[in-house]
């Protein structure tokens, strides 16, 4: 295939953000069109280079073609939208009903989330799967958060002296910490390769749950928690809002609008949580929480820019 057209296809593909199989099909379709066009132009007497140049000119800008293809192919069905929002509603219901401290309810609920996430991951990773993955990772996020004081103690002991935690606890904590981070990063990177915007949506509940963990942990312990029942309602509301945002996300076609919706909802949710948890936190407090939301939103985009997106073009394409 002509190198210039290969570059053109790479530019289109980098902006598609669709499922790999569909991207392959679209790129093959464009390649086949290019082949027919250049063959005809060559029959008219043009050289290989002239034919390729003219064919590329006739295609339109890669940004425009990619944007139109995304808008044509990215819209999911209402069924997909409901599937995407379901885990948000499940966890919101756990908070709203105050059952989050009841392990007989929480463990089966997260078991279901985990089973759906793992089976979906091995069955083609449909677009509705990513919120399930986000919540399946949540116990790992919580574990990492809970282990932070142990890790902090280890670092203090290593650099400034002091006592290390008990050997068993230390080995277990470090092993879990590293394993959890590895799983979170590996999965996040794979989702980011698929589409950083989906990764941002997947990670959207993280700051909300982190606020809750932070508040519980430093307010007297995460496993007791009966004195923090008043925190459940704002968390449930924020997760419900994320559930409805997911429906919008999968039903909208324009990427720019999807981006705007997620940013707006993430920031508003965090502000709601901040006000509910810590009362009047003032202008700078609100700005700080907005910045946290924005950072978590933008992190996948930065990662994608660093690691690249999708698979390279094969020789066939």
């Amino acid at each position: 295939m002509d190198t210039v057209f290969r570059n053109y296809l790479c530019q289109v593909r980098a902006r598609l953000h669709l499922k790999e199989e569909l991207e392959n099909q679209l790129i093959s379709e464009l390649s086949s069109h290019f082949y027919e066009k250049t063959s005809e132009l060559k029959k008219q007497g043009l050289s290989d280079e002239e034919a390729a140049k003219k064919a590329i000119e006739s295609f339109g800008a890669p940004e425009e073609v990619a944007q139109l293809l995304y808008e044509a192919c990215s819209k999911g069905s209402m069924k997909d939208a409901l599937k995407l929002s379901t885990p948000h509603f499940i966890v919101a219901a756990l908070f709203a009903s105050g059952l989050l401290h009841n392990f007989q309810v929480v463990l089966p609920a997260f078991g279901v989330v985990l089973v759906v996430a793992v089976s979906g991951w091995w069955r083609g990773r449909p677009d509705w799967l990513y919120s399930w993955i986000g919540y399946a990772l949540m116990p790992l996020f919580a574990g990492v958060f809970l282990l932070l004081p142990v890790i902090q103690q280890v670092i203090m002991a290593l650099f400034y002296g002091g006592s290390l935690p008990a050997t068993g606890l230390l080995i277990g904590a470090v092993a879990f910490f590293l394993m959890a981070l590895w799983i979170i990063l590996t999965i996040s990177v794979q989702v980011i390769r698929r589409d950083w915007l989906i990764a941002s949506l997947m990670l959207a509940p993280v700051p909300i749950i982190a606020c809750w963990l932070f508040h519980m942990h430093y307010g007297g312990g995460i496993l007791g928690g009966s004195e923090f029942v008043h925190l459940n309602q704002p968390i449930a509301q924020a997760l419900m809002v994320l559930g409805f945002t997911s429906v919008l996300f999968i039903r909208l076609r324009q990427r720019i609008i999807k981006t705007g919706v997620i940013i707006t909802v993430s920031i508003i949710s965090m502000m709601m949580i901040g006000q509910s948890f810590w009362g009047d936190i003032g202008f700078f407090g609100l700005m700080g929480l907005s910045l946290v939301s924005l950072t978590i939103f933008i992190l996948p985009a930065i990662t994608e820019a660093l690691i690249g997106q999708g698979e390279p073009l094969s020789d066939r394409q």
Binding site: V12, L26, E29, L30, H33, K37, S58, F59, G60, P62, E64, V65, L68, L69, E71, A72, C73, K75
Partner: peptide, 15 residues
Amino acid sequence: LKEGTIYPVLRKLES
């Protein structure tokens, strides 16, 4: 037609 832009329409009609 700008040739690359026909495929989004075809895909949308297919979907």
